Amino acid sequence: MASVDIEIAGRTYPVACRDGEEPHLRSLAALVDRKAREAAGALGNMGETRQFLFASLLLADELKEAHGGNAPAYDATPDPAVADALERLAERMERLAERLESRG
């Protein structure tokens, strides 16, 4: 398992990925970074969590437009492995947000 440091909105985050996927992860991070900076530029000073929220919304909007105005097909059947991974990610993001807010 490889580890990559990615920078988004001026902060560096260590992220694990499969060996050989480092360049792909860096390119995705660069896209998210551009959107986070775009959101901050358009909306002014905001917290990191809100900046990531708006960056996500901008990316989702682009994805929807790329699919002719329709969101990609979505299978509502939950995958337990994906649900567990998303839950762990959400918990990790909440802990990170709490740490960042306590620094402010």
Rank of each mutant, 00 (worst) to 15 (best):
K64A: 05
R34Q: 15
L25M: 10
Y13G: 05
E38A: 14
A85F: 09
S56F: 04
A76E: 12
A73V: 09
L89G: 15
T49R: 11
E48C: 07
S27V: 03
A36Y: 01
E38D: 15
L89N: 11
D5T: 11
E48M: 09
A39C: 08
L43K: 08
S102G: 08
E7M: 09
D33W: 02
L86G: 12
V32W: 02
A2D: 15
E38R: 07
D75F: 03
R26Y: 01
T12K: 13
L58I: 05
A30S: 11
A97G: 11
V4G: 01
V4P: 00
G104R: 15
K35Q: 13
L89E: 13
Q51P: 00
F54H: 07
P80W: 03
A36P: 02
E94I: 12
L63P: 06
L59T: 03
K64E: 14
A29K: 02
I8F: 00
H24D: 09
R11N: 07
D19A: 12
V4M: 02
L89C: 12
L86E: 10
A60R: 10
A39Q: 02
A40N: 05
G104K: 15
L53W: 08
V4I: 08
E91I: 00
E91Q: 12
Y13V: 07
R11Y: 06
I6F: 04
A60F: 05
D5N: 10
E87A: 13
L100T: 07
P72T: 04
Q51N: 05
Q51R: 15
F52Q: 00
D61K: 07
G47T: 13
G68T: 02
L58F: 09
R88S: 07
P72W: 02
L31K: 05
N70H: 11
A40P: 01
A97L: 05
V15N: 04
A97K: 15
L43P: 00
A16K: 13
N70M: 03
D79M: 03
R50Q: 14
A16R: 15
N70Q: 14
P80Y: 09
R34W: 01
A76I: 03
M46T: 07
R88H: 10
D5P: 00
L59W: 03
M1H: 12
D75W: 04
R92D: 15
E38L: 08
A73I: 06
E38C: 01
S102P: 03
V15L: 13
A90K: 14
A40S: 11
E98G: 05
L53Y: 08
A16H: 12
E98D: 12
L25D: 02
V4N: 01
P72S: 06
L57C: 11
G41R: 14
K64F: 01
A2R: 12
S3F: 09
M46K: 02
E48Q: 08
R34Y: 03
E7P: 00
A66N: 11
A55K: 00
M1T: 14
P80K: 15
R95S: 11
A30G: 11
T12N: 06
I6T: 04
A39D: 02
D75R: 09
E21Y: 10
P72A: 04
E91A: 14
M1G: 14
I8M: 01
D33A: 06
T12R: 13
G47M: 03
D19E: 14
E7K: 13
L43W: 04
D79Q: 06
I6D: 01
I8N: 00
R99G: 10
E65Y: 01
A97Y: 12
E62D: 15
P72M: 03
R103C: 04
F54V: 12
R26A: 08
A29I: 05
D84V: 01
H24Q: 10
